[in-house]
Simulated scan of single mutants.
Amino acid sequence: MYAVIVSGGKQYKVSEGDVIRVEKLEVEEGAKITFDQVLLLNDGSLKIGTPTVANAKVSGTVLQNGKGKKVIVYRYKRKSGYHKKNGHRQLFTEVKIDKIG
């Protein structure tokens, strides 16, 4: 059994027991969360939503909120002496999928 959900403008294929990293959500660690936007549900028979599947929900538990690895952004223009170095760490929420229904 698996489902395709939407969170933070991105789509994730999830099964029960999976741990996924989604864009930062304003939820505390250990809290329960429900994803209502289910685009596709496969529970023996394939159900495709238009755009979402009616009465389908995916629930999970928030494991942690954190920051990803640092990505270096380096800008450089030759012959002019211009260079700029910048770093970015994207915030994320790690969710364990408990139930698809």
Rank of each mutant, 00 (worst) to 15 (best):
M1E: 15
M1P: 14
Y2Q: 00
A3G: 14
V4N: 14
K10T: 06
K10D: 09
K10W: 03
K10V: 03
Q11I: 04
Y12R: 10
K13F: 01
K13Q: 12
S15R: 14
E16I: 04
E16L: 02
D18N: 04
V19C: 09
I20V: 07
I20R: 00
R21V: 09
R21I: 09
E23M: 04
K24T: 04
K24Y: 08
L25I: 10
E26N: 11
V27C: 12
E28S: 05
A31N: 13
I33F: 12
T34F: 10
T34V: 11
D36P: 12
D36C: 02
Q37P: 10
V38M: 12
V38E: 12
V38T: 11
V38C: 10
D43W: 05
D43C: 03
S45Q: 12
S45Y: 02
L46A: 15
K47R: 13
K47H: 10
I48T: 05
I48V: 13
G49S: 01
P51M: 06
P51C: 07
T52F: 05
T52E: 08
V53H: 01
V53D: 01
V53W: 00
N55H: 04
N55S: 02
V58Y: 00
S59M: 03
S59W: 00
G60F: 01
V62K: 15
L63I: 13
Q64P: 00
Q64S: 07
Q64D: 00
N65R: 12
G66E: 02
K67A: 01
G68F: 04
K69T: 05
K69V: 04
K69W: 02
K70L: 06
K70F: 00
V71M: 08
I72C: 12
I72D: 04
I72E: 15
V73E: 14
Y74A: 06
Y74M: 11
R75N: 09
R75C: 03
Y76C: 13
Y76I: 11
K77A: 09
K77L: 06
K77Q: 06
R78L: 06
S80Q: 11
G81I: 06
Y82R: 09
H83I: 01
H88V: 10
R89G: 02
Q90F: 04
L91Q: 15
F92W: 06
T93R: 05
K96Q: 11
I97L: 01
I97Y: 07
I97E: 01
D98N: 15
D98V: 11
K99R: 13
G101I: 12
